[in-house]
């Protein structure tokens, strides 16, 4: 959601200057569901500039000098947190952590109390991960900081959607008319939702595949967003696809009656080399990690030539740098340290 409130103090004029060619004046990054193609492309272009910085011998630029980025992870996550931390540090921001383990969040402090603390601490950007869908909206409404959603419940993981779009575009070119298969537990997946929200405006079509119990019921019954289809048969979903994104399968889905067995899941919806061969020649394989090798993806596929899984991780840092830059830069990127 956009907001009419001004951005982080002092960042406004600079942001217009650096991103002047295309509109990008978001105050928060909560979801990409209402982003235009232009806004997404601005972030992807900015990401390219950030990749260049990451390839320098000294991976550091000054744009966020004097800014404080608070990483508020109320749900365990190492990869995303470290990725944001590297991104913030590469842009010279001061970074501090409020993590779940050992923090007051675990002691039952309410989100409301945490927000008041965040507000009092005066961070410029709050990067948050939370188990409840919508929690970043709650925080964004009650703080002056820019809020970046690093994953909320089943809802959204905007930076993952953007890094997946960047990675895909880098691998297969313009996404217009391309078909991407997303396989697995779509129902509980914020990654799937954000991938859909980011890929559709770029012109891609999405085919969902997975067990019927792990697809939102409305989507299974034909009420899908335009551009998205559901194909329970994985072979058919992959036939001629331009890329595939496998989702992580939580092992507890079997215990809650949503799956007969992990073994059956692996046989029916696991990505094997044979299945991957049904896609267009060279079509890439992606996964948001961490992977359950042998369940949703075979080791040979995960580490094979088509796999972009490690590239996704590298691009993740660049995308997060791009967003931090667009939200809170104090100094232009071109200035050297």
């Amino acid at each position: 959601m956009s907001s009419s409130k001004p951005g982080v103090a002092g960042a406004e004029p600079l942001r217009k200057e650096v991103a002047g060619r295309r509109p990008w004046n978001r105050r928060h990054v909560l979801d990409t569901d209402d982003w235009s193609r232009e806004e997404i492309e601005t972030v992807l272009d900015q990401t390219r500039a950030m990749r260049e910085i990451l390839q320098r011998p000294i991976r550091r630029a000054p744009p966020l000098r004097g800014r404080t980025v608070i990483l508020f992870f109320a749900e365990a996550s190492t990869r995303t947190r470290v990725s944001f931390e590297l991104a913030a540090k590469a842009l010279s921001a001061d970074v501090t952590n409020i993590t779940a383990s050992g923090s007051s969040v675990e002691k039952g402090e309410s989100l409301y109390d945490t927000v008041r603390t965040l507000q009092a601490l005066g961070g410029d950007v709050v990067v948050m991960r939370h188990a409840s869908s919508g929690a970043p909206y709650f925080v964004a409404e009650r703080t002056d900081a820019a809020v970046i959603n690093a994953g909320d419940g089943w809802h959204a993981h905007p930076t993952q959607g953007l890094l997946d779009a960047y990675t895909l575009r880098d691998a297969v070119g313009d996404l217009e008319g391309k078909r991407v298969a997303i396989v697995g537990d779509v129902l509980h997946s914020r990654v799937a939702r954000s991938d859909i929200n980011t890929l559709l405006p770029l012109g891609a079509r999405v085919t969902l595949s997975g067990p019927p119990t792990l697809i939102p019921s409305a989507w299974r019954c034909g009420q899908l967003p335009p551009g998205v289809t559901y194909e329970p048969d994985l072979d058919r979903a992959l036939d001629g696809a331009d890329a595939v994104i496998a989702l992580r399968l939580q092992r507890e889905r079997q215990e809650t009656g949503l799956l007969p067995s992990l073994r059956e899941y692996a046989r029916v919806w696991g990505l094997t080399a044979e299945r991957v061969g049904r896609m267009r020649p060279g079509a890439p394989v992606m996964h948001p990690g961490p992977m359950n090798e042998g369940i949703e993806i075979d080791a040979a596929v995960a580490h094979g030539t088509r796999s972009l899984i490690e590239t996704q991780v590298t691009n993740g840092v660049a995308v997060r740098m791009a967003l931090l830059y667009l939200l809170a830069a104090t100094v232009p990127l071109e200035e050297r340290v």
Binding site: G153, Q223, P225
Partner: peptide, 15 residues
Amino acid sequence: HEGTVSARLGLPGIP
């Protein structure tokens, strides 16, 4: 309510 909106918002639905 379990429907298109809950699917979009990623909230558990009540069918």
